[in-house]
Design a protein around this nucleic acid. Structure first.
Lengths: 141, 141
DNA sequence: CTTGCTCCTCTAGTCGCTAGAGAATGTAGC
DNA sequence: GCTACATTCTCTAGCGACTAGAGGAGCAAG
């Protein structure tokens, strides 16, 4: 079995693009891997796991600083996990809030689009509503 | 009645911050207003209306290029409004998609947070799930 | 006349990448 | 070996939509 892989293969396996991997190294999120004689990075299984962790975290919308903290926690398994829990809860609260405001937005946009009679711009409800906020149903935004 | 207001007052009335107003002028979204003798911008009612239009559009998540197009349309009311309708519909589709993926995300995060027993990091479900994507319910993301 | 606010221009920073230049290294076929 | 091509390297600059800060000028009230 392969003991280590070059960056392109690491990208393929992790789903993180090559320049992004280098970027993560640059900002200190991923440790600098060993190099071959020809100065090329090669990644061990542990690096690939870390990369997968980062990718999954990014997919869940955690920002880099949060991921940095989560990775540090992962490296110290005997610590209490209150911090991890707090970070995840904050992210959850943010997602819930976003869903709320996007749902309000959706209602607004549906009204606009339904109201459009496909005529001239002068009578277009889309433009009209944009120009006059008070025509919105709920002024939640 | 006030014929024109300085930038701070325009910011107050429109809810757009002072540097952002200057930024909009810089990128050509807002026409450069007249200046006082002391070189200060002063805004007419029409400028304030345009600013309100921009702000509302941004709140609804339209990007600057879309707003540029919408503003041009507003300036030409006799044109057909198909373009405006298309832009709004694209935005709506985007919002719907975002709500979908955020809702999947929410489920994921709830599982993580609920699974956390507030113990040590080594047994924390938050960290565990982040490290192993296959533990996710639906691999929609 | 001084205090304190608003305003001016300009540059640089934010976040999380992404794109591109220009060079070196590695691999496969001949 | 030689050539062609892919992959990798470093470095810098750009994206969107602002935001922050420096350093200075204008202006209104006490």
């Amino acid at each position: 079995m392969m003991r280590s892989v070059p960056i392109g293969e690491a990208a393929r396996q992790s789903g993180v693009k090559v320049p992004t991997i280098r970027y993560y190294e640059h900002i200190g999120l991923l440790p600098a891997p060993n190099r071959t004689e020809g100065n090329r990075r090669h990644y061990e299984t542990s690096d690939l796991r870390r990369l997968a962790f980062i990718r999954h975290s990014r997919e869940l919308g955690f920002d880099i600083e949060a991921i940095r903290t989560l990775l540090t926690l992962q490296d110290n398994p005997s610590q209490p996990c209150a911090t991890a829990d707090t970070i995840a809860q904050a992210r959850l609260a943010d997602v819930v809030q976003r869903i709320r405001s996007l749902t309000a937005l959706k209602a607004e946009l549906e009204l606009m689009v339904e109201g459009c009679r496909r005529g001239k711009v002068g009578e277009c409800r889309v433009i009209e509503v944009l120009a006059d906020h008070s025509q919105c149903e709920h002024a939640r935004h």
